[in-house]
Structure formats: structure tokens, C-alpha cells
Simulated scan of single mutants.
Amino acid sequence: MFFTGSRLFYDRYRLNSPKGNFQLKLTPEQVIYQFAGDIAKVFPIFNQLPHKFKLNFSKRVLNFLNQYAFVEKENVQLTNAHKVTVAASYIKLTLGYRQYLINTFDKVVVYPTAQYFPHLDETHTGHFNPKRNAVMLALDEFEHDIYYNNDGKDLALHEFTHALCFEMLQTYAKHPDAERFKKGFRLINEWMAVPQNKAKIVQSGFLRAYAFTDRLELVSILIELFFEKEAVFKQHFYDLYVYVGGMIKHPKIK
């Protein structure tokens, strides 16, 4: 039997079946009307965007809610507004991608507060578990981080970045932006490997100590700072700022 047809059809990136369990049936216009204030908690410029950009962002939020399930644990009180806000956090991170949904998780598991994870023998406010295809978040920490949205910490961004790394850094990753992501990841780590660069960033206190745990924690914390400490990041560590933004194809990085 002869092979016919484009090889790209078989190699292209395709999403797994949707698992979403969001109950409201909304249009992008209705998302703007009902949840603009909630989206602005994680994406402060949302209300200043032209309407067509708001519609695009809201459509992406709805697609996230259709693709991924929310799982409530320990009697957590999770509202529709919480779910939209979590979705908006992810959409903010992946705004530069055309293929912005990924397959390394299919659910967001939400606890009321920090949890002990036996397989890690540690207590965490958030965790990405690729074996369970789950991003786990503590609601109290998530709410704290979006309320204090310029303190350099954002739990949802951090854990979603771990999921994105797991997707993009696979040896045979099929995501259309995987090579760009890998290049950015390499440039970040090469920058950090230069002794004077590392000394400067350590002495500045710009990175919290946890960033030096490993390369994945470093990247997740740099993503948090890219969004929450943009002005300082851009002023003092411009090359690193460009590498981080370029890795996720952020629209601000040309």
C-alpha cells in the first residue's frame, strides 16, 4: 500500500478530548459583561483593550473552560468567577500562541489551602502532577496572589508554566511553538550560567531563593516576574526579560 497525503497531517499537534465541566453556557460577549472585573484581577489591562481583543481573550477563556475540568477538594467553595479567573491566568500566559491549549493536563484540582503531597513528602500551595494530568492550586493562595498582583508571586502562572514546560520540552514535542520555547529555555539557562549575570541577579534580590532549586523552578518564577515586575525586570535585566517573553511569544516582545 502506497502512502498518500501530507505527512504533516499525522505529525500535527492535536488536542485530547475536552473534559470541561463549566456549567454556564456563555458567548464571549456575555463573558465580558459578567466577568470583566474578574478577568481584570489577573489581566489588569483587560478593560482598556479594544473590544475585538476583549472578545478574542474571552473566547479563549471559554475554550479553556470547555477543555479542562475543575475538581473541587476538601469542600472548597469554588465559584464561576473563580473558574473564569483561573482560566484567564492561563490565557494571559499563552496569549502569544495560536495553539494555546495543551495536553499535559486535563483538570485543575482546587483545594481550600495548602496540601501535603505524600509522593513529595512536602506541603505545597500548588503542584503540577503530569502523571495525573493535573494542575493543583490552593484557593486561598491563588486569591492572595491575584489581590497582591505586583509582589512577584502568582501561583496559577507558576503551575501553568510547569505544565507548559512539560509540554514544550519533550524530545519529540509536536506543539508548533515547541522549538521556540526550547530556544528560549536554553537562552535563559545560558544567561544564568554566566557568573557575572548570576551574581548580579542574586545580589539584587530580584529572584526569590526557590528559583535556584532547579531550571524548571527558575523559569516558572521568571514568568511570574515577567508579568508582575515588568518595569524592574526590563530595566535591570533586559536581555533576560526578552528571552523570557520570547519563549512564550508574548506580544510585547517583537
Rank of each mutant, 00 (worst) to 15 (best):
L62S: 04
G96H: 00
N149I: 04
R208C: 11
Q30M: 13
F105A: 01
T104C: 01
R60W: 09
K229Q: 13
P195T: 07
E29M: 14
L8N: 12
T104K: 10
Y148K: 13
I39A: 11
T213D: 08
K229R: 14
E167P: 00
R12E: 13
P112S: 03
F3N: 12
K54C: 09
A231C: 05
A134P: 00
A40P: 05
D154M: 10
L65V: 03
F2I: 12
K73L: 09
F117H: 10
M168H: 02
N16L: 11
E217A: 08
T79R: 07
E179M: 13
K83M: 15
V110D: 04
K174L: 12
Y116P: 07
E167W: 01
A69F: 03
G184F: 00
P28Q: 08
D154A: 12
R215W: 09
D177E: 11
Q196E: 15
L49S: 02
A114F: 05
K200V: 01
F43K: 14
F9N: 11
Q115A: 14
R60I: 06
L207D: 09
E29K: 15
G245N: 03
F53V: 10
E141L: 00
L137G: 01
R7N: 12
Y243H: 13
L218Q: 05
P44L: 01
K52P: 00
C165I: 06
L139Q: 10
E167L: 03
F46T: 02
K59I: 05
F212M: 09
K107Y: 01
Y116R: 10
K198E: 15
E224Q: 08
R215E: 13
Q235P: 08
P251I: 02
D177N: 14
K107F: 05
P44K: 01
Y13V: 02
S17D: 13
S204Q: 11
P112R: 02
P18D: 07
T94W: 00
A134I: 00
L216P: 04
K174I: 04
L78M: 12
V135N: 00
L222N: 07
P44R: 04
Y100D: 08
T171D: 11
L139W: 01
